[in-house]
Design a binder for these strands. Structure first.
Lengths: 138, 138
DNA sequence: ATAAATGCAAAGCATTTGCAACCAT
DNA sequence: ATGGTTGCAAATGCTTTGCATTTAT
């Protein structure tokens, strides 16, 4: 595995982080790959994956995996909740308070140590709701 | 894909559901495969996957995927939260109330339709906490 | 009878990895 | 100089699929 004691700032790594920081679409590794390529034309997908892993471990980005076959990544490492549209697959950030008290509750219930939690909502996004209504109106 | 209008009760399907209903360990497809084999010696993994998909669609079981490369399945289809031990990978059910009010909150915030939500906690389970303390005591 | 379901093996596909060359420090 | 990183391509490993055959209804 990759080293931990000494992390270099390569242009690939910087580009990946920059791409991730500047989008809200929670992209896949492949989307990131295509973006980074515009700046570093011969990056390899392997490098994308390796760096996404390292950046995740460093706490710089967040990996999301909701049932789909591939992961999505979030450039905002602070805990926040997500909404996933089951129609189009879009993922949106939710701006509501983090329920920290739940963590304590779980610790007491199970006798475990909780370090983190995640919450995600599923349903239909505004766009998909709209097109459903339109097609229903026939 | 499989048919929807007409679902047969095959011994394979019954065995899979029965295995899933009688364990709390949130097993992988492979574990289920090994269990079902004890009763139906020549089931194939393909059948396990096909049925897990059907049973999930029928709302009889739940598919869980937390970043790991493979899915785990839960024989309890009613919404409930999970605790994932980051040390040993065990998954435990959490017996606390479902926060339905969050769904309304999200609908209002984003203007979407929420049909479901999930919440999972991460940390160290009782077992792993214990062995950490022991090794710390040197 | 007949369409759903199975077993088998091949295929898919996102992600990982080995290795020689490369480059940040 | 030197060991972390990269590109490339091959390998992994979970999951899906095509097809001939079996089986529930």
């Amino acid at each position: 595995m990759e080293n931990k004691g000494f992390i270099r700032k390569t242009k690939q790594r910087k580009a990946i982080l920059s791409v991730l920081r500047s989008t809200k679409i929670h992209p896949t590794a492949d989307w990131i790959y295509e973006e980074v390529r515009k700046e570093v034309p011969n990056v390899s997908l392997g490098t994308i994956y390796r760096n996404l892993k390292i950046l995740t471990e460093m706490g710089e980005v967040m990996e999301l995996s909701y049932g789909s076959t591939y992961s999505r990544f979030d450039g905002n490492p602070d805990n926040h909740y997500h909404f996933v549209c089951e129609e189009c697959g879009s993922i949106f950030d939710i701006d509501i308070d983090i329920a920290e008290k739940f963590e304590t509750k779980v610790e007491n219930k199970l006798g475990v140590k909780v370090t983190d939690h995640r919450m995600e909502f599923y349903g239909l996004c505004t766009e998909c709701l709209k097109s459903k209504q339109e097609s229903a109106a026939k």
